[in-house]
Design a protein around this nucleic acid. Structure first.
Lengths: 202, 202
DNA sequence: CCCGCTAAGTTGACGGCGTCAACAAGCTCG
DNA sequence: CGAGCTTGTTGACGCCGTCAACTTAGCGGG
């Protein structure tokens, strides 16, 4: 009653739903997100969300898409910080990528993984994921232009790099890697192996 | 009525549950597996499974563990086929790994991904996954002994390789890679980048 | 100014789910 | 043969997602 007044028409329920769903995901994983619980938390009825999202799947897709956007922003920031493809840029990109996953495991899991998202083609999600991939391609191309790595198909190279960091992130957040292992050393090993494998000198 | 006779005591319901769950996973994904549906298919009541598995999560864990075992067997077979670490062994291991994921996407998704498996520590699952990892370490070590790759911490190198193939497999089965891309070329690019990055000559 | 239209939220209901407790049927072994 | 253990069944509970019918709030035109 203090601020959110205009109780009935909620102001911006859509944004609140997205925020609350994201919070719940990072608390208890995607499976803890429930249309009914989300309503309870926002002091709104169970089916209020259906005025803003076709179904639960659509809500989760929107949250996942926001995750892709955030991750892409972070990767862009790394590129902007050290503009001209210093040799240490790729390791840094790798570290930012993996750290994002480790800090938001539930969110990251949702972004990949069709499991929670039954709906067929969600073009919105595909687009934001592609935007992330395009950013990786751009980084690869800047390395090619500076002559650091071989000039092969940049898409293939970007897929390989993406796979390596995504795989590492995934193994880490699923607990497949012994906790005794030093995460930073693992990230460095991955990025340097990648870079050596793509080097131009051969 | 024809064969499975002895209707009441089902013979080997436990094995039947595992097989049926695995089949359902590969048909409609983990989310299509339901204690009630599995019972219907086996002509058994909904809660019969609870005599053999503590809960749904335990059943899924057992299925996932069987998947890890199958995958490890396949990787071992590659090693057995060409015993002494020919240079083409690693690419072959990579291809077998990724193909396994592509052929059993639902199963592979279940093996990784805590999402469907709420239960805390499932030591059984951890062990079988570790057995798979040990196989990878063994392969790395045989490469080290033949002098093909640098003699660094074989665990770190194995994690990097595992991450790369797991990441590629994951991106493929989640549909993150444009379908126009040639999967075999992508696998080759990944394994050769990996091998070049680990090469001894530098 | 008010009246009706639409957008936003609510409530009741339905069927499906996982799981527990109480029960029944079949097997095993003394 | 019968007691006890194992295996399977049934009923019930409380969740869940979602739809249909309803109510309320706000807005724009007369």
């Amino acid at each position: 009653m203090t601020r959110e007044s205009t109780a009935y028409h909620h102001g911006d329920l859509r944004a609140a739903l997205l925020a609350e769903a994201a919070a719940m995901i990072d608390e208890g994983g995607t499976s803890s997100v429930t249309m009914r619980e989300i309503g309870r938390r926002l002091g709104v009825s169970r089916s209020a969300a259906y005025r803003h999202f076709e179904d639960k799947s659509a809500l989760l897709v929107a949250v996942a898409a926001a995750g892709f956007d955030r991750l892409r922003d972070r990767l862009e920031a790394v590129g902007a910080g050290a503009p001209d493809a210093g040799i240490e840029q790729l390791p840094q990109v790798g570290r930012v990528y993996v750290r994002f996953a480790l800090e938001n495991p539930g969110h990251y899991r949702l972004m990949y993984g069709k499991e929670a998202i039954t709906r067929e083609d969600h073009p919105e999600l595909r687009e934001t994921a592609n935007a992330l991939f395009d950013e990786l391609v751009r980084i690869v191309q800047s390395y090619q232009q500076s002559g650091t790595i071989r000039r092969e198909d940049p898409h293939l190279q970007a897929y390989v790099a993406w796979g390596a960091v995504h795989g590492l992130a995934s193994l880490l957040i699923e607990g497949q890697i012994l906790t005794a292992v030093d995460v930073d050393a693992l990230i460095r090993q991955t990025t340097s192996t990648l870079l050596d494998g793509m080097r131009a000198n051969l």
